[in-house]
Computed example of a mutant assay.
Amino acid sequence: MVEEIRVERRDNVAHVVLNRPSVRNAVTLAMWRELADIFLGFASDRDVRGVILRGSAKDFSVGADISEFERIREDHHQAAAYEVAVDACSGAIASLGKPVIAAITGYCLGGGCHLALACDFRFADRNATIGIPAAKLSIVYGVNSVQRLLALTGLSNAKRILYSADRFEAEQAIRMGLIDELHDNAVASAEKFVQRLSANAPLSIAGAKFMLNGLIMGNGAMDLVIAQRLVDEASDSKDFREGREAFVQKRAPRFLGE
């Protein structure tokens, strides 16, 4: 049986690969749930210092597998349960205290864009096409994803993306804020970037990510007690002492995340 999601380890970087190339990596309800479990598992895996989310073959993902909607999303009760699973997935990605990069090739539409928005960075091939066709399906995008979209693109672009349901070529998408960087090989560039970030202090990255994500999600989204705890833990950490000593000794620090 073909794995619909593959996890590949390359040194300290985990590649999470959407693996349904015959349907351009459309995401099923079961996959949303499995992705959430995978990213939650990375939180306690000290060997993983960064994650790359990508698709197999030519595309990142054309989004949710609409072919199963008649069975699993027939009314607002089922739709609410479906959105719970989707939000749990994007929440697990966004809350992981490690860098996560979406390496986008080909189509990144709807639910695929939802996944990419939850990542810290979006690196794309020059042939990438991005869009959110919810308005063509009479679907209202979930609050958390709209908030992430708004934070990245600004109000006018977010409205254009959601109202029009258009597909945007890579050059336009980067101007709108949907993409951070364009590359000839997004996967290779993402891996190189994650490797560079992995040399930095894990506690610093986790603390910064928690605060920045909390701040962009609006008032009350960030737990200030947890934020202060993260500050204090980093201040008392062995890595903080290692960083100071490495700076004085003019050498590269060896961070362990403790």
Rank of each mutant, 00 (worst) to 15 (best):
L212C: 11
M176Q: 05
L117K: 00
G111K: 05
A158M: 07
V23N: 12
M211Y: 06
R33K: 13
A170N: 03
R10M: 09
S156G: 02
N219W: 11
Q228S: 08
V2M: 14
A201P: 07
T129S: 06
L230F: 08
L137H: 02
A221M: 07
R229Q: 13
A103I: 02
Q147N: 10
L115M: 04
G142W: 00
N185A: 12
M1K: 08
P202D: 11
A170M: 05
G91W: 06
N12H: 12
I132C: 00
A64T: 15
L137V: 00
E8V: 15
K250P: 00
V140F: 00
L155T: 14
A79T: 10
G55M: 02
N185W: 04
G218H: 08
L150E: 00
D65R: 11
V231Q: 04
A206V: 10
A135H: 03
R196D: 09
L203V: 08
R73M: 15
N213Y: 07
R254P: 01
R251L: 07
I66Y: 14
S198Y: 04
D87M: 12
D47Q: 10
G220S: 11
S189C: 07
I139Y: 04
A43V: 04
S95D: 12
F121R: 07
A36V: 02
V100F: 05
E34T: 09
R73Y: 08
V100Q: 06
D166R: 13
D87S: 12
G207M: 09
L96D: 09
G55K: 04
V2Q: 15
E8K: 12
N219F: 14
E8G: 00
A173C: 10
R251V: 15
L53R: 03
H114Y: 02
E83V: 14
G41F: 03
N25C: 07
D180H: 13
S138G: 04
F42Y: 11
I66V: 15
L29T: 13
G142P: 01
D87N: 14
F123Y: 13
C89F: 10
K58I: 08
L212S: 15
K136L: 14
S56F: 06
Q78G: 15
R122G: 00
L150F: 00
A252I: 11
L224P: 01
A208C: 07
F168S: 09
T28L: 11
S235E: 10
K136H: 14
G110F: 13
A201S: 15
E3D: 15
V194M: 08
R10C: 07
K159L: 13
K58F: 10
A79E: 12
A234W: 09
S56D: 14
S189M: 08
V16Y: 03
G110K: 01
A30V: 11
M31P: 01
P99Q: 06
D236H: 06
E8I: 15
I38W: 03
E245G: 05
A190D: 09
N219M: 14
L155I: 10
Y163R: 11
A227V: 05
A188M: 07
